[in-house]
Write a protein that binds this DNA or RNA. Structure first.
Length: 801
RNA sequence: GCCGGUGUGGCGGAAUUGGCAGACGCCCGGGACUUAAAAUCCCGUGAGGGCAACCUCGUACCGGUUCGACCCCGGUCACCGGCACCA
């Protein structure tokens, strides 16, 4: 019999809603648990089948915590600023806020349709001015402390979106959103000084419980390297400073390379005898997009500076200087000492320009390739470093450089400051005005929120200015400091702004005086468990850690890390094993699955599909298996079973085993095996009818996974309260032990059969049972028994001669 | 190139971390019920061989350690994700 999921699911969703069944309390005697999912971007397409995987996972975890007696905060909100909405608005001539409201309504009904135990009283919307008031407030605090600054710099410019992108938004040289070409363009931008937090963002990874691959990815992204800055004298008079992680190889530095953007080139204009050639190379580099620069990476190019040379500080020899775009202006000092013997790139370049290659660490064959993996090598051709190991040479040369005033030890990071301006309409206005006398001035906090004005057109202007730039009456204002005429900043913030602190707002979402009260923050933060996608590891996750540390530094939040624990899910693929996409036509709409099988089935299937951390293809026929399982549960409990609420003697062990398995599997996010354990239990119940207590246990364990059917059957059975809020179960370890156990019997490591012995049998008794077995007797007969290995409760291995 | 991960039946995936490989589910085959079908229930289902009890092989590939290896070690291949001239 198929159960009436439509009626049941609607009934319970209505009841949970009207009773605010899962609302969190800001004060409670219970221990708190704050479970968080990444709030969705409310796109026009509605909920994607990718959403329910992490949502259901955390719903299961938080439902279990609630049943375990925690005061649980499991909130939901919408990250609603952003390009797709704006593009839709432009195309359809509808205000983005209208589009956003509509999309949020769709998402809300879909999320409710799936039965999530969110606290619907705490919904946050990043485009609500009561919310973005505080996003702006945080920006002003950063500005006041010098962490937000304006800089003219080459930025990534999307030719289609007509918009500046953060480095993180450029993927393989194209725009992450639209796939169009990204070129480099000089522009004045608001920047956030995330680099000032680089070391702390790295160090504090040791204090949090993140899955290892997230930590590794963040570490790589931050990219700390230690080395020295070394000053090279030049024949022109100026010194040229380089950064190197291999100061030990200084004797092997046979030339230098500076980036085409290096400032010293301007100084040397009169001294260069091949200035036109140099400038031609500079121009060519400037015109290249990042994509072209990386595409051409395989082939080195460059120009030797004529008329100027550098002096190697240890050898005293003159070495040539080149410009080449394989040296980046934005890392280190924008200049390097080239050691072709021990650096692959330098080796290639030296071969191309026929430059000397000197071996300074013995062990490789530098005529064939650069010898880079040489930590164990010994220094040669290196004067006072000869005979030292690489490690010792690094120490000695650093001392020598410091002593001579030629260099210092230095740490560099790959992490760059965060480009925080977008030339777009649908984002938080940056609350800054520009005054001719005072420069950039922050709005007084009393003037927040700075509302996004209504404009006629949402398109970026042709010269790449925000649509706000056309609003002269909005732009023109007075300086809050001196009262002189001033103009507003017309750029808006990137989408990452609102999502960098939303989890704080959930603790106190309606507070008008602060982003959240200190009491609420003290009580709820840090987030105990945050699950999200790997794709946010180097963007959202790092940004929000940065903002949180800043807020901690200015005394707003009580902890320096926002999230205690971070786990990550993988995507669900289409039935064809490919990534789901509209163009492939393999997208599964959760609405369809819910309509046909019900929300409980969808939840169950999505968790049963496979390892939570691995991608798994959708399978419509497997969905049916989960529906069948729920039908069988229904059939077991659709009429009230009489009797007491203890477990039956028949099922006592099975029930205890299921409690143990489901409890631990949820903690480890092994939802697939937890569900398998529930299926096994139901199979046993089908073989031999369960009593009232057995059913109660089943419904309790099922409740986090399939809450609607669990609550309905709970009510039919007349148990107290609801399954959703029933106490979680403990198991009795003594009930997990069987009276007899099956021991595997191996001969020479190969399985030959099994014997059954009492579970408390000692080794001798087990051996006796093995030798009493007729089959074993037959095999062993007439052969010498050399050794018997007994693994308690597992197996016996007989080694024959 | 560098960093991380994965490789197990026809399919999704299990395996208490060195101890009975394939739990659970899907698909498929057979049977019951039905006028029939669907649904449901029962049986079977890694491959090969044998009438049978049973035997042999089997966790990407090659080798090693071990009484015993999906698991540990060395090497190879394939796929996925991230970074990508970061000096």
């Amino acid at each position: 019999m198929s159960y009436e999921f439509q009626r049941i699911e609607k009934k319970w969703q209505g009841r949970w809603d009207s009773e605010h069944a899962f609302a969190a309390r800001n004060a409670s005697d219970k221990p708190k648990f704050y479970g968080l999912i990444e709030f969705p971007y409310p796109s026009g397409e509605g909920l994607h089948v990718g959403h329910p995987r992490p949502f259901t996972a955390m719903d299961i975890v938080t439902r279990k915590r609630r049943m375990q007696g925690y005061n649980v905060l499991f909130p939901i909100g919408f990250d609603a600023f952003g390009l797709p909405t704006e593009n839709f608005a432009i195309k359809n001539k509808i205000h983005p806020s209208v589009v956003t409201k509509r999309n949020i309504a769709t998402f809300t009904s879909q999320l409710k349709m799936l039965g999530y135990g969110f606290d619907w009283d705490r919904v946050v919307d990043t485009t609500d001015h009561e919310y973005y008031k505080w996003t702006q407030w945080i920006f002003i605090q950063m500005f006041k402390r010098g962490l937000a600054y304006k800089a003219s710099m080459p930025v990534n410019w999307c030719t289609s979106c007509k918009c500046v992108l953060a480095n993180e938004e450029v993927v393989n040289g194209v725009c992450e959103r639209c796939g169009s070409e990204v070129v480099r363009r000089e522009k004045s931008q608001w920047m956030l000084k995330i680099t000032e937090y680089a070391q702390r963002l790295l160090d504090d990874l040791d204090t949090v419980d993140y899955v290892e691959r997230v930590k590794i990815q963040q570490k790589n992204w931050i990219g700390r390297s230690t080395g020295c800055e070394v000053d090279f004298a030049t024949t022109a008079g100026e010194t040229l400073r380089v950064f190197t992680t291999r100061p030990d190889t200084l004797f092997g530095a046979t030339y230098m390379v500076i980036s085409p953007e290096h400032a010293i080139l301007k100084t040397w204009e009169t001294k260069l005898t091949n200035l036109t050639e140099v400038q031609a190379y500079q121009d060519a580099s400037a015109r290249k997009s990042d994509f072209e620069r990386t595409e051409m990476a395989k082939v080195k190019s460059g120009v030797r500076l004529s008329g100027v040379a550098a002096i190697n500080p240890v050898t005293g020899g003159e070495i040539p200087i080149f410009i080449s775009d394989y040296v980046l202006a934005t890392y280190g000092t924008g200049a390097i000492m080239a050691v072709p013997g021990h650096d692959t790139r330098d080796w290639e370049f030296a071969k191309l320009f026929d430059l000397p290659i000197i071996e300074v660490v013995a062990g490789g064959d530098i005529t064939q390739a650069a010898y880079t993996d040489c930590d164990t090598g010994v220094m040669v051709n290196s004067g006072f470093l000869n005979g030292l190991t690489v490690a010792d040479a690094k120490v000695k040369i650093a001392e020598w450089l410091t002593d001579k005033g030629l260099g210092t030890e230095k740490v560099n990071f790959k992490l760059r400051d965060w480009v925080f301006s977008r030339q777009r309409y649908w984002g938080e206005p940056i609350p800054i005005v520009h005054c001719e006398h005072c420069g950039y001035v922050a709005l007084p906090e009393s003037e927040l929120p700075l509302l996004l004005p209504d404009v006629e057109k949402y398109e970026t202007t042709d010269n790449g200015e925000s649509p706000l730039a056309a609003m002269t009456d909005w732009i023109n204002t007075t300086c809050p400091q001196c009262g002189a005429p001033a103009t507003r900043e017309t750029d808006t913030m990137p989408q990452w702004a609102g999502s960098s602190w939303y989890f704080l707002r959930y603790t106190d979402p309606k507070n008008a005086d602060a982003l959240a009260s200190r009491d609420a923050l003290d009580y709820w933060t840090p987030v105990d468990w945050y699950n999200g996608g790997m794709e946010h590891t180097t963007l959202h996750l790092l940004y929000s850690r940065f903002w949180h540390k800043f807020l901690y530094d200015i005394g707003v939040v009580p902890t320096s890390e926002p999230y205690t624990k971070r786990t990550s899910h993988a995507f669900i693929l289409g039935e064809d094993g490919q990534k789901m996409s509209k163009s492939r036509g393999n997208v599964i709409n959760p609405n369809d699955t819910v309509a046909e099988y019900g929300a409980d089935t969808l939840r169950l299937y999505i968790m049963f599909i496979g390892d939570f951390e691995k991608e798994a293809p959708w399978s419509t026929s497997s969905v049916k298996g989960c529906k069948r399982f729920l039908d069988r549960v229904w059939n077991l409990a659709e009429t009230r079973i009489g009797g007491g609420e203890g477990y039956s003697a028949t099922h006592e062990k099975a029930v205890n085993r299921a409690i143990a398995k489901v409890s631990s599997d949820i903690e480890e996010m092994k939802f697939n095996t937890a569900i398998a354990a529930l299926m096994t239990l139901v199979n046993e119940f089908s073989d031999s009818p369960p009593n009232r207590g057995d059913i109660k246990a089943l419904l309790t364990l099922l409740s986090p996974f399939a809450p609607h059917i669990a609550d309905e059957l709970w009510e039919i059975q007349g148990f107290k309260g609801t399954a959703s809020l029933a106490p979680w179960l403990d198991f009795d370890p003594s009930k997990l032990i069987d009276d007899t156990i099956t021991i595997a019997v191996q001969v020479g490591g190969k399985l030959k059969g099994t014997v059954t012995v009492p579970s408390d049998a000692d080794d001798e008794a087990v051996k006796a049972a093995v030798f009493a077995d007729s089959k074993v007797a037959r095999i062993v007969e007439g052969r010498e028994l050399k050794r018997v290995i007994v693994v308690p409760k597992k197996l016996v291995n007989l080694i024959l001669g």
